[in-house]
Design a protein around this nucleic acid. Structure first.
Length: 531
RNA sequence: GUCCUCGUAGCUCAGCUGGAUAGAGCAUACGCCUUCUAAGCGUACGGUCAAGUGUUCGAAUCACUUCGGGGACACCA
């Protein structure tokens, strides 16, 4: 319908259809569709926008348009007949879980890397936010016709892992009665204490002479286990896992370094090898090889990105915490220096989650182990509420997470509101059989039309969410749809004395049910059939 | 100091290719269950869209400046 109106106008004004913006007004007294084209054109025609609008009003003729209004300062509002909404009910029922699917992605390949937390502790709230965002985007992209690869980059090499090994070793040796300090930048999480304890309980002090590598590997194994278990419970899964250590085994960081040296992008200073990042848009030069000959994190990460780009992705998206902001220019300049297009890499920064308890901010730190874990969150509020809570807010708000509120499991979380709409529909459909309707004739009130209009909008919401990379548009959409349904439900009977009417109503609410489920699925929420 | 980001109702947040009277939830005060789930619906209260300047027919939205919150500026990741 939108396209049709745009086309009609473009033919009259003789301009490109794409120039014409047709929007759905927030207030439905302004019609089903509205355009500001008359105001846009007044400069070109040197005419009053109201004049242009009136002119268009008289020239547009179409059987589906029942009324055209011209309103100050020059809006043209279209009122269309509602058959398209009624016809859409059968489309929804026919397409089921595919209703709303789009092809705008055109099969483009997107690599989505998210969470990628170091295996030096368990996942916390910040990771949960990143996980929810990444997974939501993956679901939305797929639904919008993109090909998506979800990747977890495992930092199982380097300094931090060394610290993990040393921390774990210290804990274990202490249990064996041997004095050993946790290193300065070591990890103090309970989960590390537990791994040491489990080991001690299993083998006693047999491993007291084991080297750090033993503890590193043990720690990585156990912590990755817990990370992926938590994520799975959170309904977040991955397609590929990339190990930093494996990149070393394949010699990729080495090759990357050699390439950069060969192309004179590297110089030596103070015994370290520096990359001339400033020549490629970086804010400052960066060290790739430390004076102890170890590589910094950046070198294997450049290799990693190059390797991914070689696989033909049109876009690489990394979801990182806001504290990694400074890293963006590092990695991008590295990619450019390797002769690749760094614009293909898009980095999404998520603002950190501020944790509120008893009205006060709780500082989080992985090192001190004083954070709320993802696991704990799920235990307290459930996966649905947690997923929705993260999905409903855009990434760039510094969100407050009130743990007292969340643990109340109350209706203050909108996910219950949406679930309730879904459960209401399910309970009606459970007790009432419906049959196919070929032509809807009884549905004729604004509450119903408002609901159906929302159902109709779904596909464009999916496309918008994909294009703008904003999953919260889907969360908000689900809420709006539930809201309109609740209003409709409270004012209208679905089961009536009239069999034909009842049957049409049942089909209509079934279309709402399907659309709700599809929307919620895109943000990892599974609505309950009963509440 | 330099860079990034945010600032919208008492609180938590929507509002995003500039549009019509700036919207929800929570909180507060009232209504609505003999009928399909009241975890719902409705009414009221609540705003200098941080401040200023500019661009525009039109700005919460775009640009610049100032103020304020958060973050980043490692031979950590």
């Amino acid at each position: 319908m939108k396209e049709k109106i745009a086309k009609l106008i473009s033919e009259i004004l003789n301009i490109d259809e794409k120039e014409i913006k047709i929007e759905i007004p927030k207030n439905n007294k302004f019609g089903d569709y509205s355009t500001n084209i008359a105001m846009q054109m007044c400069k070109i025609y040197h005419k009053n926008p109201m004049e242009i609008a009136s002119d268009l009003q008289s020239k547009i003729k179409d059987s589906d348009i029942v009324k055209i209004e011209v309103v100050n300062p020059g809006f043209i509002n279209f009122f269309v007949n509602k058959n398209y909404l009624l016809d859409n009910i059968n489309k929804v029922i026919k397409e089921q879980e595919n209703y709303g699917r789009s092809t705008i992605g055109n099969g483009q390949k997107i690599n989505l890397e998210f969470v990628s937390a170091n295996p030096t502790g368990i996942l916390h709230l910040g990771n949960a936010r990143g996980g929810a965002y990444g997974d939501n985007m993956a679901r939305i992209y797929k639904f919008a016709g993109y090909k998506v690869n979800k990747e977890y980059y495992i930092n199982d090499a380097g300094m931090q892992i060394n610290n993990l090994g040393l921390s774990l070793q210290a804990r274990y040796l202490n249990l064996c009665g041997i004095k050993k300090e946790i290193p300065l930048n070591g990890y103090h999480g309970d989960e590390i204490v537990k791994i040491a304890k489990d080991l001690y309980e299993e083998v006693g002090s047999q491993q007291k002479d084991a080297n750090v590598d033993f503890f590193k590997n043990l720690g990585i194994e156990k912590l990755l286990d817990s990370i992926f278990n938590d994520l799975k419970e959170f309904r977040v899964t991955y397609d590929t896992y990339t190990s930093e250590k494996k990149l070393y085994d394949e010699g990729l960081p080495q090759k990357t370094l050699e390439f950069l040296i060969k192309n004179s992008h590297i110089y030596e200073q103070d015994g370290a090898l520096w990359f001339k990042a400033t020549q490629f848009g970086g804010t400052r030069d960066i060290v790739l090889v430390k004076k102890d000959k170890e590589y910094t994190y950046t070198l294997p990460d450049i290799a990693h990105h190059i390797k991914t780009m070689d696989q033909g992705y049109t876009k690489l998206i990394n979801v990182l915490g806001a504290d990694h902001h400074g890293y963006i220019s590092n990695i991008k300049s590295g990619i450019s220096a390797m002769g690749y297009d760094s614009n293909k890499l898009e980095i999404k920064l998520l603002q950190l989650v501020k944790l509120i308890q008893n009205g006060q901010e709780v500082k989080m730190s992985k090192r001190t182990g004083k954070s709320v874990s993802l696991h704990e969150l799920i235990e307290k509020v459930g996966v649905n509420a947690a997923r929705y809570f993260f999905a409903m807010r855009s990434l760039d708000t510094q969100m407050d997470f009130d743990i007292d509120l969340a643990t109340k499991k109350s209706s203050e979380n909108p996910v219950y509101y949406i679930s309730y709409a879904y459960a209401r529909i399910c309970s009606i459909l459970k007790d009432n059989e419906s049959t196919n309707v070929t032509k809807y004739v009884t549905i004729n009130n604004n509450d119903a039309y408002n609901v159906l209009k929302k159902v109709f909008e779904f596909k464009s919401v999916v496309e918008n969410a994909a294009k703008k990379e904003l999953p919260h548009l889907v969360a908000t959409y689900a809420y709006d749809l539930a809201n309109l349904f609740h209003i409709y439900y409270s004012k209208n009977r679905i089961i009536t004395d009239n069999r034909e009417e009842t049957n049409e109503n049942l089909n209509m609410i079934n279309s709402v049910k399907i659309t709700l489920a599809n929307a919620l699925n895109l943000i990892g929420v599974i609505p309950p059939e009963r509440m």
